[in-house]
Simulated scan of single mutants.
Amino acid sequence: MTDGPKPIRVVDFSQVMAGPFCTRLMADIGAEVIKIEPTEGDAMRRRPPLRDGQSTYFGTLNAGKRSVVLDLRTEAGRQDAKRLIDGADVVVENFRPGVMARLGLDWDTLSARNPRLVYCAISGFGQEGVAASRPAYAPMIHATGGLDMALMSYQPELDRPAPTGMFYADILAGVYAWGAIQTALLAREHTGRGQLVDVALLDSLMSMMVYECQEAQFPQIRARHLYTPVRAADGFIMVVPLSDKNFAGMLALFGGPDWGADPRFATASGREANWDDLMGYVELWAQDKPAETCERLLLAAGVPCSRYRDVAEVMADPATQERGVMGTVRDAAGAFQVPNPPFRMSDTDARVRPDIPELGEGDAEFLAPLRAELNEGE
């Protein structure tokens, strides 16, 4: 019986969110991810939610990895990093452009030592150009990238952009980096050579705004159709009676109201153009009913509908649990739930790995052999 192929080895210099999200997806599909941390550890280890001193935020982003402590400010730390990378398949970093070059750990240096290396650099604005050196956190990218103003335009009651609490740019960049790395590894099978992957948060965010980028070039007379929440007795529902069949089912459920014959609602385009008026009638029906009842009745009538739920409700949903959307991980404070990768594969075990690394727990396994080989060679 022979051993299977070695897992892809990833040396991960990234911290905070975009890079760690990318490399956790790598770990989720079986890669060996070595997380390089400074002596004080990744700053995310101290970010809430915390319990018993352990960050579940950090755990979500770093489950399944191994932690190695290197002081990259020292020559010894940089040399250890190079020796680790000599045997690696992938490097991921999200420092500001130029930092890795000053450390002697840039693409040109490392690929000369390891021509098969895939080197992924994640930054706010790309590795080159006039904006490359700008600092970049996701809220800044949302602001400068047009997302916040686009969202504000869809909420005319606002007099300023909404506060930011979800970091879309980080997650998008992490996903794009993960996909680009897979492409580079596949290309390596044909060419024998690695390559540099340059992923920018701004580019990633812009790719999400498919309609907005086109409307910016070709302004439309009629504002974009917006889907709006409908108030029920104890919450909100989203109702989408776009097709003629959906609309007819809704009218039947409502008992054939007179407004159902309004010519403005006779076609899908007419319903879109007069959506606020249509939803006003739906809200009159829903306002004295629990949201869960509205959802059940509308779905039974063939009308697309979803009740607005909070995250805890979604996690507790039997359908979420049946699908295996969440996985169990553990750290020194115990077990908790984190999202699994959002895909399933027939031949690959794609799931979050359960163990969250303690700071430096992989030092002996990964660094000691390299140092022993160096001593033998002297």
Rank of each mutant, 00 (worst) to 15 (best):
M1Y: 04
T2G: 05
P7T: 03
V10A: 06
Q15Y: 02
G19D: 02
T23F: 11
R24K: 08
E32T: 09
G41L: 05
A43S: 01
R45H: 06
R45F: 04
P48I: 05
Q54Y: 04
T56W: 00
Y57L: 15
N62W: 02
A63T: 02
K65T: 08
S67R: 13
S67I: 12
D71H: 02
K82T: 02
I85D: 09
D86N: 03
G87N: 04
V90P: 05
V90H: 04
V91P: 00
F95V: 05
G98K: 09
A101S: 10
A101Q: 12
L103F: 14
G104M: 01
D106I: 00
W107C: 10
A112H: 13
R113F: 09
Y119A: 11
V130K: 04
Y137F: 15
A138Q: 12
M140L: 15
T144D: 08
D148Y: 06
L151D: 07
D159W: 01
P161E: 10
T164Y: 00
G165T: 12
Y168R: 00
A169N: 07
R188G: 10
R188H: 09
E189V: 06
G194R: 06
Q195W: 05
L201G: 12
M206T: 13
M208R: 00
V210L: 14
V210P: 00
C213F: 03
E215H: 11
P219Y: 04
A223F: 06
V230K: 03
V239L: 14
V239D: 01
P241F: 02
A248P: 02
G256T: 13
G256I: 04
D258W: 01
D258V: 08
W259Y: 08
G260P: 07
D262M: 07
R271F: 14
W275C: 02
D276Q: 09
L278I: 09
G280R: 08
E283C: 03
E292P: 00
E295D: 02
A300C: 10
R307K: 11
Y308R: 03
Y308N: 00
D310Y: 02
G324K: 03
V325K: 09
V325I: 15
P339S: 09
D347R: 05
R351M: 14
R351A: 13
R353T: 14
P354Q: 06
E378W: 01
